[in-house]
Amino acid sequence: MDNFLQLTFQGMALGCVYALIGLGFVMVFKSSGVFNFAHPVFVMISAYIVAALVPHGFGWGVLVALVCMAALAIVCEKIILRRLAGRSLYVVIMATLGLSVMGQAVVAMAWGVNPRGSTEGPMGRGVLRVGGVALPWTGVWIITVSLVLLAVLYLFFQRTRYGLALRAAADHHEAALAQGINMRWVQTISWGIAGVLAVAAGVFLGAFPRRVSPDMVDTALGALPALVIGGFGSLAGAVVGGMSVGLLLVLGSGYLAEYGGVHVVLPYVAMLLVLTLRPSGLFGHHEAERI
């Protein structure tokens, strides 16, 4: 039982990270119709910035990463993707893939390709003992901060006029234009929020497996099955999908250890099941093509 609780806790922590990454994808997709393949690179760059600045203070690292990523995301949107508005989907996808490759190359130039430290900072390596269960402090931090971020995001969407504008724009693009909603603002804000989410995900991903390395891009791409499971384009779906993937991975690695690395395929099996039984995902509506 203790083992199960322990694994569930770890799974939830990893699930929170996937949820944050998934939300970054969904924010951008819902506002500008772009599937941003560069998002995992944003996550990695954030982790590198924080890891590099941890010796000067964790808080400084996070602050610098937040400013850099929000700025980078907004610049990508304004300079590159806005110019591609109305071009074919493939052009836009290739542009974000190109950004991703560029980002990885820049990181390799600046920091090399070997793992560089971690982003633990004050989260530390200790454990919190609750009964017979040992909960790593990193996990406690990840779950707490993620819940706070989700709550803030929820309040932003439900209670502010910009949140309402974003939801309206995602619901019906042309009607939102006709209502005088300024789409440039909507897109800038969503990309900015995606940048902030990337920092949170980067810090947590760099603290949880305790390694900041170029592999983080692949790990972050693990959010894709989460998005499909949850229903692409749904914020709630990103959270539920992320949680499912985190739990599947960790519970799988705990209970199926004798079968080698089989847990790695579990999210993809779940994804295929969902695609077969409910193609729009658990929370998805039918996929609307943007104009």
Partner: peptide, 10 residues
């Protein structure tokens, strides 16, 4: 707009 384009999920 033509065709009652409300925001269906709001």
């Amino acid at each position: 707009l033509e065709g009652r384009q409300v925001f269906p999920n709001l």
